[in-house]
Nucleic acid binder design. Structure first.
Lengths: 223, 223
DNA sequence: TAGATTGTTAATCGATTAACAATC
DNA sequence: TAGATTGTTAATCGATTAACAATC
């Protein structure tokens, strides 16, 4: 059993889900910082728009990373976050649905930077099958299971139309996928052992519309 | 002053931010439901994966929409949610950055359905300027301000590369944009009066990597 | 040593859940 | 009327913030 996994799981209480994306932001801020060896929770807070207490608390869920009076050693912290997030490993990713959005994501080089690498793409459209996109040959969706097993893929990105989404996700789950980033505008059902995160454009736009419709506009005399 | 706006603002306490996307989910669930005239908080909860108490509470922030003993009238509820979210209006949208992702979003018909309509697209690349995409002619980014004023655009989608994002967002703010959906992997600075929501692919993938790295795998003997 | 800053505990804040009187 | 279900209040849960002893 990896020693650090044990310590991560045992330490204190479980980190709140919102801590995880914050770790990513801390990491990004640290990437910009090669000028000094140490960084304080205060400085990291300013760089990421949170509070010093929050920064310290977030790290504390995973162990002790700092030195009282000095702060956090930048390299060590970067390394630690990388290990906590699991981005010290390479992650092969499957992409299902090579439409406009799927193609765009395939070509998105930002993925590679973090160790995520789309190694398989699938579609049901005969037109698209066999074509090459960003170095990946689009395969028939029937090849999904074998390919996922073969390449030991655990993460899938779903960019199929709404109606196809639940079917595709069922198939991914049956193929052994453990984490799914879904762009189809549905809340798909999946077993609790599979983590499904949804990115939903219409929901995001509606949140903005709400903000615009309900933001105070001088009407109530506020400032 | 619109009467319902007044009542929305005055009613109870301010709705928590997480209530808003839930309203969108309730709305979607209601769209599927034309078989009965009434729906109960219990049924809506089951359809959207939340609790009946949560459903009632969410609506209660905005007024009284139900009838004790009967439930909520489906049509009335749909209408009310539409009004609360502000999607009863048409929202012209500007898109900045017509790369892979920007083009994909331009062609994404899902936008239209909710009353969001990309009516202007901008890029700095001479290659792209003048081209037509999904019925919109890509304009030079210098035309941003005039176009936004002219078309009274309040919402912008930003799909430019990381390095350009802050500049573009500053420009949008100066042009009078009030809500921004940003896909560039930065936390942009903007005045509090402008609502900026970020969709960040790498952060989402890192969250999934964290889940995969830290999910219990039989190691601790749990089930 | 004196000053700075951590890690942690306690206090606060905010959101969810439970319970139930009001009422259709 | 009896049964169902709302709207709301109180209890619980979880996350953030404040405060400070420990310590580099």
């Amino acid at each position: 059993m990896p020693a650090e996994l044990f310590s991560i799981k045992m330490k204190n209480k479980k980190a709140p889900v919102v801590t995880i994306p914050r770790l990513s932001f801390y990491y990004r801020a640290l990437m910009e910082k090669s000028d000094t060896q140490f960084v304080s929770s205060q400085e990291l807070a300013e760089l990421t728009g949170t509070s010093a207490a929050q920064v310290r608390k977030d790290f504390a869920y995973f162990g002790q990373f700092g030195a009282a009076g000095k702060g956090y050693r930048v390299d060590f912290l970067k390394n630690s976050i990388t290990r906590i997030l699991g981005v010290d490993k390479k992650w092969p990713v499957a992409l299902v649905g090579v439409g406009n959005l799927g193609s765009a994501l395939l070509s998105y080089k930002g993925f590679l930077r973090q160790g995520f690498h789309v190694v398989a793409a699938f579609d049901s459209d005969e037109e698209k099958i066999g074509r090459e996109l960003a170095g990946v040959i689009v395969q028939n969706i029937d090849a999904l299971k074998d390919e996922i097993k073969l390449k030991k893929i655990k993460i899938a990105v779903v960019t199929v139309p709404q109606q196809a989404a639940q079917d595709v996700i069922d198939k991914l789950v049956r193929s052994g996928i453990k984490a799914i980033l879904n762009f189809a505008p549905v809340r798909p059902r999946a077993p609790k052992s599979v983590e499904v995160h949804n990115i939903d454009l219409s929901i995001e736009l509606e949140r903005l519309a709400y903000f615009l419709s309900n933001s105070p506009r001088r009407i109530f005399g506020a400032h």
